[in-house]
Design a protein around this nucleic acid. Structure first.
Lengths: 226, 226
DNA sequence: TACGAATCCGGACCGAAGTCCGCTTAATTT
DNA sequence: AAATTAAGCGGACTTCGGTCCGGATTCGTA
């Protein structure tokens, strides 16, 4: 599996501007198209670093992705890695960026039932399944890319997902506290939880999938699908 | 706030026997009463360490709880800390142990609506509220005690909570996949999520509480409480 | 009380994340 | 083209979690 290395654009430069939390201002164009345009050498190094990281993963698994190892493999100083990606989590999230955008594009503008056109509840069902399977492969990377608890819910990709769920919910249950319900639904799709259920409890994906459908039905007070 | 330092008994001694995952064998007496009885010096040091850790938290916050600092404050070698608690997470969980057992005792054998006697749905509601507020104070500690993603759902206190929810759910929705629903409900009570909603999004606890009630209603397909 | 073995102790040691700061280099301006 | 300056670079350094192992303690047994 390759991790879409060559184009992606995330992450605060360096002093890490401590982004204003959780204002769901997005939903405009999906992702910002291009950051303030890196200097030539910076851009080159960024690409090298992502490529190096992907190679390291392929060879030694996520555990092999040490900041120093990446720096070395990219023939770059350690400081450069941190400047560009902030921290290890940032680097790993950058590796996931491509698939993240892909998913976002799919549910924002792709064909139904994931994209617009299908009724909200069906979009919700499709959404969960999509996220579920996306997390299922990439699981190791997703787990490793999980930031410390305090930032877990405060990063752009997650917020995009939550915003989308919220929007769909509002169309079905306009009088409910859709933010909270969305949070709950999103939690069901948490990589750590998927990991626990599939790898530690041995549940098959089909069961998780059915569980999602059922959960959506209950949360939206829809009659059971079956 | 003090952290119940003097009695508690958790955590694998040292070689960390990698406990068999997730077999919900508990529910027998709640917690195991006493571990294989530590050697005198070990027990003494254990108490000292917990006391020292609590003191450090009181003085410098959770961030001040460095394994070395704790060791020093307890006038003990660093290795001793790790031998006793396995890792930092283990130490912090030990600090939470008392309140953990308290809660467990309350819902296993306390007075209704938390304890047995009330109808299941009401017990569920009470349970959520209890957990919610317990996590709300202690939040910092709870967050810091959160293990890395791979172990997040695989520790005794969490499993006890999940088992309990599952049992209650089964009484209400015997034909549903109660394990998965329980997991979902439990996720709503996750400290990281509470932190995000209250401190980062600024929601008041009352809203979270209402959200829980509503969620329970929906998940159990009960008519809205209001 | 003496002894042996299991348990425990402690601190030196290691690896990796993250910081710092003087130097270099690419873009911009004149 | 030279000068200016903001951005980037790199690697030494710090900090902290976690490991290791020779030596000390405790406790059951004789």
């Amino acid at each position: 599996m390759l991790y879409a290395v060559f184009m992606s654009s995330v992450l605060p430069p360096f002093p890490q501007p401590q982004e204003p939390f959780d204002t769901p201002q997005l939903l405009e164009v999906g992702p910002a198209p291009e950051e303030p345009c890196l200097r030539a050498d910076a851009a080159r190094n960024r690409a090298r670093l992502l490529e190096a990281a992907a190679r390291l993963i392929a060879e030694h698994g996520v555990a092999g992705v040490t900041m120093e190892a990446v720096a070395a493999a990219a023939e770059v100083g350690k400081g450069t890695v941190f400047r560009r990606f902030g921290d290890r989590t940032g680097l790993l999230m950058a590796l996931l960026d491509h698939s993240s955008r892909q998913l976002q594009a799919d549910f924002l503008g792709g064909p139904p039932p994931l994209g617009p056109g299908a009724p909200p509840v069906e979009r919700l069902r499709a959404f969960g399944v999509a996220v579920l399977y996306r997390s299922a492969d990439q699981l190791d990377l997703q787990l490793a890319a999980q930031p410390e608890p305090t930032r877990r819910y405060a990063n752009p990709p997650i917020q995009a997902l939550r915003t989308h769920i919220t929007m769909l919910l509002r169309q079905v249950e306009p009088n409910a506290d859709c933010e909270l319900l969305a949070q709950t639904l999103l939690a069901y799709l948490d990589p750590a939880q998927i990991h626990h259920l599939t790898r530690q409890c041995g549940m098959p994906m089909e069961r998780l999938e059915a569980g999602w459908t059922d959960l959506v039905d209950r949360v939206t007070r829809t009659a059971p699908t079956r």
